[in-house]
Design a protein around this nucleic acid. Structure first.
Lengths: 195, 195
DNA sequence: TCCTGATTTCAAGAATTACTGAAATTACAT
DNA sequence: ATGTAATTTCAGTAATTCTTGAAATCAGGA
């Protein structure tokens, strides 16, 4: 059970890229193999395909589970653990974004809020304090927007994304409307649509 | 010239976070120091604040320049290089996103396109091939959207972001209307019938 | 319970990445 | 050109992260 040249190359590439993301080469390759496989694989099959030690694969799978990037399955009459990636690519994207936010953004947001509690005592400190507030607000705007987007179902999300900047023309309009009153604005817009 | 406790804590935190991003702790701390400072700093001042070796700071600054995250400045009657971060936070965000895209997304997109040229020979290979196409399309949708957003001026961008999911109601409408014709679409926002 | 296969943990070695001081280079003033 | 301050390079060392095989743990089946 070996990899075709296309698969091989993708797996290698994904391993390299893995190290630019938070995960290491091994974990990246394991993920790629699972991603490409149309059937769930157990740890020994991954060992066979990639040539890593059994324990290395075990640790890699553990890390992927910590990222919620793989699911464990069981086959009838087989005690071994099998693994797959979510079938839906968008689900994978959502997970990735959520996990990276959790690891790379949220801790900083907490820290900024915490630091804002302390009051500045010097002049340079006041400047720093202001910067941190500004940064916090910016991050809150971004994460708030992300939360909104993440609530949308995938088809809606795709619509929005493909609209791209064209949406911006609408935004100007919506901006005007929202000055008249939020209720009115949304009512008018959704009038014929029913939610 | 030393750091207040707030600044100290932020610098340390940023260093820790740095390692979750592609940069290491030292580079993260150097960046944080520059970010907080209201005046440009030279390498020796950074050494003084952080206690790293001069050469380490030099390398860190080099890396930050490779990321376009710091700008070099010169002061009158002073031969030393001074460094600052962009004053505008949004500019920093734009740079960060652009650089991460360049390093983390673009190479994969190229690789996927390249692999799609090769034609699959086995069955499992055909499945893999399809997956890669799907993945490429998804990434293209995302990066296309990003390019659009990145073209917007900051104030527009902020507007859009704060609208959040409310924009989605417009999107459904715009989708329909755009079939009729772009000009009409924006004109008739509040009038048309929905899905 | 004991046995067997599967998985995980762990400590040690391997590999990679980061950091440093010394030497080399650069850039400018005299 | 020469001298000096500033910066960069580089090779060696330190620190961290990765990988492994052996031992420990776990989970059913007889």
């Amino acid at each position: 059970m070996n990899l075709s040249s296309i698969q091989q190359e993708f797996v290698l590439h994904f391993g390299e890229m893995g190290s630019r993301w938070g995960i290491n080469r091994t974990v990246g390759q394991i993920y790629a193999v699972l991603f490409l496989s149309n059937v769930p694989l157990n740890a020994d099959q991954i060992v066979e395909k990639l040539g890593f030690s059994r324990s290395n694969v075990s640790m890699g799978l553990k890390e992927l589970q910590a990222w919620s990037l793989v699911r464990m399955k069981h086959l009838p009459d087989d005690r071994r653990d099998y693994f797959t990636t979510p079938e839906d690519l968008w689900e994978i994207v959502r997970i990735l974004v959520a996990e990276r936010k959790k690891r790379e953004i949220d801790p900083t947001l907490s820290k900024l809020r915490e630091l804002e509690m302390q009051k500045p005592d010097s002049d340079a400190d006041r400047h720093a304090h202001d910067l941190l507030s500004e940064l916090r607000e910016l991050i809150e705007l971004l994460t708030g927007w992300y939360d909104d987007m993440n609530r949308l179902e995938t088809e809606r999300l795709k619509q929005l994304l493909s609209l791209g900047a064209k949406i911006q023309k609408l935004a100007g309009k919506a901006d005007i409307l929202s000055m008249v009153g939020r209720r009115k604005a949304t009512d008018k817009i959704t009038a014929g649509k029913g939610t």
